[in-house]
Design a protein around this nucleic acid. Structure first.
Length: 470
RNA sequence: GGCGACAUAGCCAAGUGGUAAGGCAAGGCUCUGCAAAAGCCUCAUUCCCCAGUUCAAAUCUGGGUGUCGCCUCCA
């Protein structure tokens, strides 16, 4: 499999440090409000990547942290008259609601910054001992000029950063490019004891600490949004490699942004839609479909129209699945017919092309087009077969479900057969069939309308009457 | 100012040297008692513009134009 590595700016063949195992770290949310659609992109895309790697036989350990101590959480807490811990707890729960809705599986481990203060302090001590960090006024800063590779991920030299720096030089930091590892706490803020006085960790250091604690000094994949490249990920490299003396990450993966009217969706611009609101309007699974329909590194514009397109597209696949299920239950005979043989034998070629697409820098857009081809060809085959066998439909269905499950496209099961209305619906369908047989179409249509009012839609198929909720 | 992306149909979106995937929308047809679902057909002589390299370019090179992002919290 090839992956585009932000460090080398090239597609590279993926080889994990340890054969058969993948260690993956994603920077998780700072929990001070609901996540927006832009935040959802890495969450969905890298969940799908994790599923794919497991599908390909890797044993994946996936760590995603919660940043639960931070300026924004503190200010939110002050606004709401709550503690930071209460705010963090509330929005972790909200995050989990959205993640689950989006079909995102929980990470192997979800560590919290506040549960890792000890390891954080240890790394900071090591960095000071090595001359890469300095304490100043109760704060501790990383000395970027002391670390050789600083800038290698964002491909910028420290001189260029200094030239463009918009941060004023203060008395406390030796260089404007230096960043905080530890911040002295102000009155009323969450605080922990440390060799430098009471304080709290800076944002960047927590990821270095948690990554090495749960995954080791060198990990395979570190992923996140493109905007984290600098300074966050650059700083993580400086901290982790500075402390351990070993390479930190083998493959850096960064997703492109979601924009609105060609502007990046962001909290600071205020032009965002929360996942919660978008899901209410269009459904969680269509948001997932929308994200996976294009390549993860491409910029992606968000609009109502595009979400509706994603919904129509996903509906096509879901309808095909439901039609295949119906034939698999009601088809003509259990055995594959001679006329169906060649098609069934050809099914693995869809899987092969699907894998080929995903092996090329996780090209989900191309992969999904293979699903659509399977849908189209499968539909055509069952239609052309006149009396398709149960076995034909099952074979197509199982390939379709296998491929869709790799990316987690089918997680909301809308099978209505177990519904409490089922008996009543079946009775009405029988009555309508009797009327149709008697050519009493007025009565048949009346019953169909009655069912429609109940939210039930009928389809007359060669295999019998199929019904679903509208 | 430094660094980096992107530009393909009405909309979305693959495609990095061999003659434009796929989805949505639209129109026509077939099937159907009528629907629904499905299938078939139509829908970019052309990939922002201009040069160049090549037997061959959406793809490579050079130059433009436009849009966006990072350099400050940000997925």
């Amino acid at each position: 499999m090839k992956l585009f590595n932000s460090l080398s700016m090239k597609k590279e063949e993926f080889e994990p440090l340890e054969a058969g195992k993948v260690k993956m770290y994603a920077c998780g949310p700072t929990v001070y409000n609901l996540i927006h659609v832009g935040n959802a992109r890495p969450i969905i895309v890298f969940d799908a990547l994790r599923r794919y790697m497991e599908y390909r036989g890797y044993d994946v350990t996936f760590v995603q942290n919660f940043t639960d101590v931070d300026d924004k959480i503190i200010s939110r807490a002050n606004q709401e008259g709550a503690t930071s811990a209460e705010i963090a707890e509330k929005y972790i729960a909200e995050y989990q609601t959205d993640a689950e809705g989006l079909g995102v599986r929980p990470a192997t481990i979800h560590p919290k910054a506040t549960e890792n203060i000890g390891p954080i302090i240890e790394i900071i001590k090591t960095l000071i001992d090595k001359g890469l960090a300095y304490a100043s006024n109760g704060d501790v800063y990383f000395s970027t000029s002391s670390f050789d590779g600083y800038g290698k991920l964002s491909h910028q030299s420290t001189e260029d950063m200094l030239a463009g720096a918009r941060v004023a030089v203060g008395d406390i930091k030796r260089s404007p490019v230096d960043f905080a590892l530890w911040k002295a706490s102000k009155p009323g803020e969450p605080k922990w004891d440390s060799p430098w006085g009471e304080g709290r960790p800076g944002w960047h250091i927590e990821c270095s600490a948690m990554s090495s604690r749960y995954l080791g000094k060198t990990i395979d994949i570190h992923c996140g949004g493109k905007d984290l490249t600098f300074p966050h990920h650059e700083n993580e490299i400086a901290q982790s490699e500075g402390a351990s003396g070993e390479p930190f990450v083998r493959y850096w993966l960064h997703n492109g942004f979601i924009s609105i009217d060609n502007r990046k969706m962001s909290k600071s611009l205020g032009n965002f839609f929360t996942v919660r609101d978008a899901a209410e309007a269009y459904g969680y699974e269509n948001i997932r479909m929308f994200m996976l329909m294009s390549h993860y590194r491409s910029p992606l514009n968000y609009s109502c129209e595009i979400l509706q397109q994603a919904q129509s597209a996903l509906d096509r696949i879901k309808t095909a699945r439901s039609n295949l299920k119906f034939i698999a239950d009601n088809g003509d005979g259990d055995a594959i017919k001679d006329s169906e043989r060649a098609f069934v034998d050809g099914l693995p070629s869809y899987r092969a092309r699907y894998i080929q697409a995903l092996d090329d820098d996780f090209n989900t857009a191309d992969a999904i087009s293979v699903i659509f081809e399977l849908v189209r060809d499968g539909n055509a085959m069952t239609a052309a077969a006149k009396k398709p066998s149960k076995a034909l439909a099952s074979a197509i269905l199982s390939m379709l479900e296998e491929l869709a499950d790799v990316l987690g496209l089918f997680y909301a099961d809308d099978d209505a057969s177990g519904d409490s209305l089922a008996d009543e619906v079946e009775g009405l369908i029988e009555a309508r069939q009797a009327a149709r047989k008697a050519k009493d179409f007025a009565e048949a249509d009346r019953i169909r309308d009655q069912l429609k009012d109940m939210g039930i839609v009928l389809e007359d198929t060669p295999q019998g009457v199929k019904w679903k909720k509208a």
